[in-house]
Design a protein around this nucleic acid. Structure first.
Lengths: 150, 150
DNA sequence: ACACCAACGTTGGTGACGCCAACGTAGCAG
DNA sequence: CTGCTACGTTGGCGTCACCAACGTTGGTGT
């Protein structure tokens, strides 16, 4: 039909464009999947970090998840109103709060993971098993390299 | 030092997390690189599309770049005030504007590309040549697959 | 004991990106 | 002529990421 309705070739071969575009699609899928269980990325990251690392302070959670302290506050507020986490003052350090995953939070985390499993499937549909592993490896290498000065 | 300050393992092996995180880093690098020449992603995409495809309507540009019509308007306004593009009414279809790249716009596009070349280098630093090609191939496959219903 | 600095949680604001709804205008098909 | 579609424009919303500032608390140096 109408020619030139394709993305510019220079963009289509530029890794940064590819990354941001695929990430946009991935983000859309993730947002949809999490939205189906009334959650968003920050919620999942925080709950997953709590599940793996156990109770932690908000600052610790932020560092683990790569989320700014101020954004951790807001996300935890939302999780707390749904009773998915508990926020208790730390008796050993009165500056801190101890964030604890509640049973309901564990259940919600499980639902989120199911939704995300489905997202992975559809996202990686065009890739073979070895290709998925290779993609994971390459992205991990990029991430590790650029995350050293944290 | 303090253990458990690592991202959760489940996140670190999840492709969608890897994509969004690497994309966040890539986006940061791109934004910094383009910011050094007083531009942002939308500006680069639009100028690149104009350079490759020649003058076009705003709706066409939006389709080519994957940018919403309304966002095209704002970005073109910014480019127009810097005289990087011209916006003329289309005599053949009075609904449309014909967007044309000016010589100054071509120069700015060149500066942006230089900045982005540098970004690619630092972004892909940890990968070998074949690995970069493979990453590009995998991302392209993902993008093509998920862009069919456009 | 004191002053100093660092860390914590919190509030508020900014920007980029992506998306959607609505409007008036203009082209096109029936 | 009547609709339907496309176009440009305005305005708004949500997510993610980041920064500045404040008061409180902990730890350190002197």
């Amino acid at each position: 039909m109408d020619p030139g309705t394709q993305p510019p070739a220079r963009l289509r071969t530029t890794p940064s464009w590819l990354l941001t575009q695929t990430a946009a699609h991935a983000g859309r899928l993730v947002a949809d999947g999490l939205g189906a269980v009334a959650a968003r990325g920050y919620h999942y990251r925080l709950l997953a970090a709590l599940h793996e690392g156990g109770p932690a302070s908000q600052a610790d959670l932020g560092r683990r998840c790569g989320i700014d302290r101020s954004d951790v506050v807001a996300a935890l507020n939302e999780l707390a109103t749904r009773d998915l986490i508990r926020r208790d003052p730390d008796p050993d350090d009165r500056r801190r709060n101890v964030i604890t995953l509640t049973p309901a939070g564990r259940r919600e985390l499980h639902r989120m993971e199911q939704a995300l499993d489905h997202v992975q499937t559809t996202l990686l549909a065009p890739l073979s098993g070895p290709e998925r592993a290779e993609l994971t490896r390459l992205l991990t290498a990029l991430l590790d390299h650029h995350q050293q000065p944290r």
